[in-house]
Amino acid sequence: MDQNSFPSSGLFGSYGAYSSGDPSLNIPVTSGASGSLSPYLNVDPMYLNQGDSQFIIPNGQARTRGRFELAFSQIGSSCLAGALYGAVNGLRISGVETKELAGRVRMSQMLTLVTKQGASSANSIGVVALMYTIFGIGLSWSRGTDDEINTLGAATMTGMLYKSSAGAPKMLRGGAVGLTLASVYCLYQNRDKVSSMMSGNNSQY
């Protein structure tokens, strides 16, 4: 039914004040780019969906996965990465070390070097990852939260424990190395916050 087909005066002539000719009553049915109110809704539909992803997060739970959930994957991947590094390193060393040998003897020697190097570096890196994971889980359970302080503390304790048998100075140095690595990691994780703080825009945080 087109409103414009009605005569402006006639049978409904007494309602002429509300005719479609009045521009203030020309409300669009859908919410357009102007963002004005739709006549069929009590709320502005601009509020309903902003177009970004909407996750349902349980009450009082962190947005990220917990430390324990990721623990075994982290340990396993550091183990495998250590094995890979050790194997490549062993291949590099064995080329130099077995120069005077030839044939099957050299082959066997190189194979032994690669497997031993790979195993030893996989062990050391895996143990570091295991210590870090255990300390991280312990800290996040004891403090009840999971934040950057846990990462820093766990890395420092890991460095100190890893070097604990080499005397106090080396132990402190190990802790310092862990703290440095963890600080770099934390700065990288929060680089958007850091950059906004550097530019002096402190109003958001």
């Binding site: 623990a71 994957s73 340990i75 396993g76 495998l80 990852a129």
Partner: peptide
Amino acid sequence: PWRIVDDCGGAFSMGV
């Protein structure tokens, strides 16, 4: 495929 990494880590921590 990721189960391999996961099991490797679990076995390593259990062993250590």
